[in-house]
């Protein structure tokens, strides 16, 4: 039996409040992450991702508290991330109630961190977040909020992450993020076909057809979006009804 394809709203926060990025810049406030997360739970989201995109020393305790409040309200899995540097950061959000934690820049700097986290928390709790942008014939990994290219090939890095026991890959196309021009289906397919773990596609979602394409052609296990859900451009219930009508296995909203 195949798992349901997951629809995942993502909440970018400054620790306490939701902000959202257009190509990772120009942030604006969009409310209380706990209220929004609970709303998405009711509307049929399969999981919620909450990120601390400020990821400063000051935002950290506030963010952990946000995760604690969100976990209490949610009846679906919660993934927390942004600025996770080490096991103690990861443990703090897991103990606050997150089911999974994403690591990005810190894993690029020290790939062994993935194994450390998996040994302590279980591979199922470790999500390797990769921000990738097109470079020549392939895709290059960028760190520090997608601002800084680091020379790694995205497909190779995803494969290495999985070998080092990341339980899941959250793959964001920097080129598409915030553009609402559709997922980078080629990127997603290349990574999904190269790793034995689930891949969450992110960046560029706008229409139900975008989601259909990233599941059917991109072989994504899950698809993540932010603005189109926050701005009510697309309702999860309608999206899932559309996907079900096209033969994609989804949990009814």
């Amino acid at each position: 039996m195949s798992l349901a394809r997951r629809i995942i709203p993502c909440l970018d926060t400054d620790g306490a409040r939701v902000v959202k990025g257009v190509r990772f810049a120009d942030l604006r406030d969009a409310g209380d992450p706990v209220l929004l997360a609970a709303r998405y739970d009711r509307e049929g989201a399969d999981e919620v991702v909450v990120l601390d995109i400020a990821a400063t020393r000051d935002s950290r305790p506030t963010f952990v508290n946000t995760i604690r409040r969100a976990a209490r309200e949610l009846s679906i899995p919660l993934t927390a991330g942004g600025g996770i540097r080490d096991l103690s950061d990861a443990r703090a959000v897991v103990e606050a109630g997150a089911d999974k934690v994403t690591v990005n820049t810190a894993a690029v700097r020290d790939p062994g961190l993935l194994t450390t986290l998996a040994d302590a928390l279980g591979a199922q709790a470790v999500v390797l977040a990769i921000d990738a942008r097109r470079a020549g014939a392939g895709w290059e990994v960028c760190v520090r909020g997608g601002r800084e290219p680091c020379g790694l090939d995205a497909v190779a890095w995803a494969a290495e992450g999985a070998r080092r026991q990341a339980g899941e890959i959250l793959l964001t196309s920097i080129d598409r993020d915030g553009t609402q021009s559709g997922f980078d289906v080629d990127l997603v397919a290349r990574v999904a076909d190269a790793v034995p773990v689930p891949v969450i596609a992110s960046g560029g979602a706008r229409t139900p057809e975008d989601f259909l394409r990233v599941f059917e052609t991109g072989h994504a296990d899950a698809a993540l979006a932010a603005s189109i859900f926050h701005d009510d451009l697309l309702a999860i219930k309608q999206l899932k009804a559309f996907l079900a009508s096209r033969g994609v296995p989804v949990r009814a909203a």
Partner: peptide, 10 residues
């Protein structure tokens, strides 16, 4: 099969 078995199944 992909492991861990993680996600929504019937």
């Amino acid at each position: 099969v992909k492991l861990p078995h993680m996600g929504w199944n019937r």
